[in-house]
């Protein structure tokens, strides 16, 4: 009888260790995905001064938006922000950036500039890399949610007090490739 009890205890301990490690692995995967997203966001922030410098001579009507964009970038890079504040600022940067990209069409002389074309390519690339890193983050969060909700790992998860994480909203981002014409 004692052997059966010991065997069950050993099996339960082993299963618990495996489940615990898996949960830690999934939690770390989210941190890893968040880090890669952060790298892409920094890449995007680095492009903002270049963008402002290249277009400010042409886009007189969007001067306020450009100024706001520079300020937001400064705040996100220098401020000691928590995740929610960071996400909020990032959303505002995103919206300003999209407004500027949308008004490129009104400045045909911009499209004649090689600097601008190169910059636009870099923006497209960074935006798509950012979208990819957000998708990776969301997949990691989804895996983690499955693990903390499904039995039997849900027992270990509640013991570890693991909480749900927020998904990043991709909102149809780059569902279709941006239709930007590079013909001068």
């Amino acid at each position: 009888m004692i052997y059966i009890i010991v065997t069950i205890a050993v099996v339960l301990t082993l299963v618990s260790i495996i489940l615990y490690n898996r949960l830690i692995q999934k939690k770390n995967a989210i941190d890893n995905a968040y880090f890669s997203m952060d790298v892409m966001l920094k890449k995007r922030y680095d492009l903002i001064p270049q963008l402002v410098e290249t277009v400010k001579g042409y886009m007189h009507h969007e001067k306020d938006v450009l100024l706001q964009l520079t300020e937001l970038r400064q705040r996100v890079l220098t401020g000691n922000l928590n995740t929610n504040e960071k996400v909020e600022l990032d959303n505002r940067i995103n919206s300003n950036l999209q407004n500027i990209v949308a008004s490129f069409e009104n400045y045909p002389q911009l499209k004649a500039s090689d600097n601008f074309l190169h910059l636009q390519r870099s923006i497209n690339e960074t935006e798509e890399q950012l979208a990819a890193s957000r998708r990776f983050y969301n997949t990691a969060v989804n895996d983690y949610h499955n693990a903390i909700e499904m039995f039997p790992s849900s027992i270990i998860a509640s013991w570890m007090r693991l909480k749900h994480k927020t998904f990043f909203s991709i909102a149809g981002e780059h569902r279709h490739t941006p239709s930007i014409n590079f013909n001068k």
Binding site: A132, S133, F136, H176, T177
Partner: peptide, 12 residues
Amino acid sequence: DQVEARYILTPS
């Protein structure tokens, strides 16, 4: 590279 795979394999 999980991120790069998604960068190549966009939804479209």
